[in-house]
Design a protein around this nucleic acid. Structure first.
Lengths: 147, 147
DNA sequence: AAAGTAAATGAAAATACTTTTCATTTGGAT
DNA sequence: ATCCAAATGAAAAGTATTTTCATTTACTTT
């Protein structure tokens, strides 16, 4: 279950952010897309419908959405900072090095490990990232071609 | 057990890379440091001893070392791309959002999860990242100060 | 040990990415 | 309908990274 445009708008309103056409456009783009996308990619897509939206606005909107945990930031290899719409449940990633697609999965509980580490190191643990990287089915096949 | 300068140089030689004073200097810096460091930080440190080493050389050397898996890349929050000397064992990170220190830990086996995911999705999984983020002991205290 | 050569280097330019500044516009409260 | 703080776009500034290219150098082959 991913967040909808409607829900995101409601949260923004609740935090007294203005609902501008530009922000709606960004939210629409990001909810419509299934994969993680970079700020530039979001700009390009949004720009099609709203030709006069600036890249700056994308950055500013993403910053707000990330702070409110409405989108999920991904740091990994190429496309380093990229974003996807937040899922209320915490989740992890499975990233294809070939085509860049990202599959989310929720499985796997790390609370015990988290508690142990915290006890040992004195850290107050806030969050974690668990990302697997590899090659999806079709990219595996492509690797065997003699391009 | 972390890699030593000696071992890294041997691997480079084995791959027919030339052992230049600049490369040695970068390797010395990175083996001497316990934390993850950014390319710029590596340059600054190396520059003290070798005042005429260029930042470009740092980038080029890091690229080689990363490709040979002799150093470990970390993508996270600020200091996004940063590096530490590789440990032969696979390891995970515990990152302090306050001061940026990184503690490595080796615990926790994810092979079963990896196998399950692979079976379900058809992915050929190559690697994974497990990073915890939070605040270390002393940064927790600082948070409670009134600046 | 000297010479030859491909690889490596530094400086500068080019490119890419992100943030800041500021004058103008606008959403939404009144 | 009016007002004002918040949001916007354009441009500039600030960073980070990569490319280009003439020069130097580590290492191989004599």
């Amino acid at each position: 279950m991913r967040l909808t445009e409607r829900e995101i708008v409601a949260v923004l309103r609740h935090h007294h952010y203005k609902i501008t056409p530009q922000r709606r456009a960004v939210i629409q783009t990001i909810t419509a897309v299934t994969s993680h996308v970079t700020p530039t990619a979001i700009h390009e897509r949004t720009h099609r419908e709203h030709p006069n939206i600036g890249l700056v606005t994308i950055y500013r909107t993403l910053e707000i959405l990330a702070r409110l945990k409405l989108i999920c930031e991904l740091h990994a290899g190429d496309n380093c900072p990229s974003y996807t719409i937040g899922t209320p449940e915490h989740h992890h990633h499975l990233i294809c090095s070939g085509c860049g697609q990202v599959i989310d999965f929720t499985r796997h509980d790390l609370t015990k490990l988290e508690r142990d580490l915290s006890a040992e190191t004195g850290f107050e643990i806030k969050s974690h990232v668990l990302d697997f990287t590899g090659f999806c089915g079709s990219c595996q096949k492509q690797k065997h071609r003699t391009t």
